[in-house]
Amino acid sequence: MTNGDSGLKALHNPDIPVPEELQSTIAITSLDRIYNWCRARSMWPLLFGLACCAIEMIAAAASRYDISRFGMEVMRPSPRQADLMIVSGTVTKKMVVPIVRIYNQMAEPKYVLAMGACASGGGPFKEGYNVVSGIDKYIPVDVYVPGCPPTPQALIHGFLTLQKKIESQSLRTVPWYRSGESTAIPIPLLGPDIIDPRQAELIRRQAEQAAAQAAAAPSEA
């Protein structure tokens, strides 16, 4: 194992002492810890690139930065087998429809990493008419990695940040073991502009308001 903290030592519960000479073979730990330790070190990302950042993501997976050191090299083309969606690049209105669909198809527990300025908040193309200003407008994001594009090292730092988040979770509180079904995110529609079905009410109110204003305007004049 090359990653320093990923050895057995990371598992030790500091409250229960284990003799020094046994520390490399025995660890006394809690269920939460071992559960998270396993999950954090076998994150399988979705093989899914969007734009410029995807190239840096590929570079991070290549020999120089080699994310297989973190158990992440298994990029899965199928969302059913993936744990992590790396939104690597500009999200356009046309593309957000498949992205939400793919997100819904991923099995829990699932995580989303917004890579780069575009995926986080629209980036330099934010003002564009076909650009979604941040994927978090549609799906929840766990970690944001700023940069345009983030270097492979910055991306790996993002992975480590995500690992920390996973390690802070507890079996008792994670949503995917609660009873009841988890709800899917409604798929956006392509109309005259992108439509989030969750905003149907708001769109109606806006239309009514505009109509009322239009009706009021001539009487003022």
Binding site: G128, L190, P197, R204, Q206
Partner: peptide, 22 residues
């Protein structure tokens, strides 16, 4: 933006009489 997103709809547009082109 009234919708909090990068969107703009034509005047009087609602989802009631809208069928997506698909």
């Amino acid at each position: 933006n009234p919708y909090g997103k990068n969107v703009r709809y034509p005047e009087g547009f609602t989802l009631d009489d809208f069928t997506p082109v698909g």
